[in-house]
Amino acid sequence: MKKLSAFDIIGPVMAGPSSSHTAGALRIALIACRILKEPVVQVDFLLHGSFSDTYKGHGTDRALVAGIMGYPTDHPDIPRALAIASEKKIVYSFETAPLTPSMHPNTVSMTAQGASGRRLSLEGASIGGGEVIITRINGIEVSFTGEYPTLIVQQLDRPGVAAHITSLLAGSSINIGTIRMYRHEKGDAAYTILETDEPVPPELIASIAAHAAISDVFLISFETSSG
């Protein structure tokens, strides 16, 4: 069961009106922004369930665009996010779709393109109180919350990759809370997702990324001034 913080319940500090439809939506898009690691030039959002029914009135559209631009949940410009995105020539769209049976009632999927042409598809659910779960990255089913420092290792499914990652973390005395590998098929593209107890410094991320079978490493963490 999830390690729940007092600040998951009292918090986040957020622009209203809805922790699940505004703050949670923003966090899902913010995770996409962190994974893409470059300014987004185009993004298409597909809203399911309660998101699709009520997104305009909850400012979900502004929150998602704010998140994709990297804003924290308490950024004062969230209400103006759509206008700011247009000024920055970011192309965005919103479509609605029904829930599939396995989806949480508040689910959004998105396809984003970065300035270099790099693309990312991501699906996440906002599960209440601003808490989120990322459920899919580039078509691969995953499950993580972004609540703890989270390392996402994009790799080929080859022997020795996990050992490479864990020995480097151990060498820096970083404790691993959870580790899981997600893949389509044996030998194929895969993600190893690790939640750590301590923050992971940038130089360590670079060392992890140096492995031949690893194509990229992303670090997700919501730890900011306001948490």
Binding site: I9, I10, M14, A15, G16, P17, S18, S19, P76, G130
Partner: peptide, 18 residues
């Protein structure tokens, strides 16, 4: 009302019940 105008609030536990 602050929440409904996209002002800054603290979810407790949610925005709608802040």
């Amino acid at each position: 009302e602050v929440n409904a105008s996209m002002g800054i609030v603290v979810a407790a536990p949610t925005g709608g019940s802040c």
